[in-house]
């Protein structure tokens, strides 16, 4: 049993919208699998189907070699799910929240596990505090602890670090790497590409479809293009000028633009010409290797 999750031709529609459109993929045991994509790509729908919260129109989901729709009970025992909105009871203390989630999973002897989890999430000093009095980062760690109390084999995380401060995010990732070491499989969705870089494998989802799936490294290599990064101002005018005057793909990032080219030596002069004609100030220009972000923007553009 190498594929802990096996998805075949999964479909889910909301009226006219195809939220998940013929997706097939498999997740290896013990890996961290990232589902990346823009808002509305269908990431949450995917995770909710995998967790058994909604039912697909068609397709088969196998988790731990068992059919999702047939062995619900056994599967639920072995999965943990952290939804986008941290689901905690604000009026219960840290300990009581954990106790509740242990009990509804029918875990009786949870005290040792609870202490362990509190220890390594560094929540122990706050164990008697009411959950709503915790900081955002602590709340999120507590939510994670609550989904881990029944020792799941697979952990589903839906955008777990959205709206969390950078320090807590780093803490959170430390916990995740410890879980991976313990052999837990993690399936997470994220809008952040720096987080996606840290996954073993990444699937890019757009408009309900998977448009790329591989290790971050291989995805970047497959692009086989060069990127010219130009720091300039005003960025918007530069973006429009290049688009008008060349046929090249331009990506905008804050104070800089990236131009996707086959060969920079051939394209650079015409780009610079277009910029100077439009009175754009160029502060810096360099050739960079494509980042995941470049690749994804490129792929999404192709898909459209």
């Amino acid at each position: 049993m190498n594929n802990i999750i096996e998805i075949t031709s999964l479909r889910k529609n909301y009226g006219e919208i195809k939220a998940v459109n013929d997706v097939s993929l498999s997740v290896n045991k013990g890996e961290m699998f990232g589902l990346v994509g823009p808002d509305g790509a269908g990431k949450t729908t995917m995770i909710r189907i995998l967790c058994g919260l909604i039912i697909q129109e068609s397709g088969v989901v196998k988790i731990l070699d068992k059919d999702r729709s047939q062995s619900r009970k056994e599967i639920q025992k072995n999965i943990g799910y952290l939804s986008q909105k941290f689901s905690l009871y604000g009026d219960l203390s840290v300990d009581e929240n954990i106790e509740f989630f242990a009990e509804i999973h029918n875990v009786k002897d949870y005290f040792k596990r609870r202490d362990e989890l509190l220890d390594f999430s560094r929540l122990k000093p706050f164990r008697n505090r009411i959950a709503e009095k915790l900081s955002g980062g602590m709340k999120q760690k507590l939510a994670l602890v609550c989904c881990l109390i029944h020792e799941p084999k697979i952990l589903f995380l839906d955008e777990p670090t959205t709206g969390v401060d950078p320090v807590s995010r780093r803490d959170f990732w430390k916990i995740l790497s410890k879980l991976l070491k313990d052999g837990i499989t993690i399936f997470m969705s994220t809008p952040y590409l720096d987080e996606a870089e840290r996954c073993n494998r990444v699937a890019l989802m757009n408009a309900g479809e998977i448009i790329a799936l591989d290790t971050p490294q291989k995805i970047k290599e497959k692009m086989n293009k060069q990127i010219i990064e130009i720091v300039c101002s005003p960025v918007r005018i530069a973006y429009q000028a290049i688009k008008r005057n060349t046929m090249l793909e331009v990506q905008m990032f804050g104070d800089r633009i990236n131009v996707v080219v086959e060969n920079y030596k051939l394209e650079l002069p015409s780009i610079k010409k277009a910029l100077t004609e439009n009175k754009v100030q160029i502060t810096d220009e360099r050739i960079i290797s494509p980042s995941l972000e470049n690749v994804f923007m490129h792929l999404i553009k192709d898909a459209e």
Partner: peptide, 13 residues
């Protein structure tokens, strides 16, 4: 409203 029902639904309850 709080979304806690999701966690309950994910359990085998």
């Amino acid at each position: 409203e709080r979304g806690t029902i999701e966690q309950i639904n994910v359990s085998s309850i």
